[in-house]
């Protein structure tokens, strides 16, 4: 699991590459939260285009970042979610937060 991070005009983008489980979610969470506290972005984008596997730890990761961004008055977007993760996303009820965008989809068209 690897992440690459960019910060552009108040938008923090964290691209997650590899598998998200309980072990790797803890690493992403730590790295992302440190950046949120240092940079105070108005928007956090979690880019899932290179996520090859995810279990419910990924759901916890998204919900936690949603809360933290809310606390700082910012927003979260989860973009480029691969098709094979959709069943889990639906099961989790995360759809209600309106932060999930499928691969190749913009939120406006959701």
């Amino acid at each position: 699991m690897k992440t690459s991070v960019t910060l552009d005009d108040g938008v923090l983008t964290v691209k997650i590459c590899g598998e998200i489980d309980h072990h790797t979610a803890a690493l992403v969470r730590k790295e992302t939260d440190t950046l949120i506290q240092q940079k105070r972005p108005r928007e956090l984008i979690l880019d899932f285009s290179s996520v090859t596997f995810m279990d419910s730890s990924g759901i916890g990761l998204i919900m936690g970042r949603y809360r933290i961004m809310g606390l700082f008055g910012g927003y979260l977007r989860v973009v480029n979610v691969p098709e094979n993760l959709e069943k889990l996303m639906i099961l989790s009820g995360l759809g209600a937060l309106k932060v999930i965008e499928r691969r190749g989809e913009m939120r406006e068209s959701a």
């Binding site: 969470r29 279990d55 419910s56 759901i59 916890g60 919900m63 936690g64 099961l91």
Partner: peptide
């Protein structure tokens, strides 16, 4: 506190 979503068994059941 571990940021568990509480979905473990639900996922096992569903999958």
């Amino acid at each position: 506190g571990e940021e568990r979503a509480g979905l473990g068994f639900a996922v096992m059941q569903s999958f």
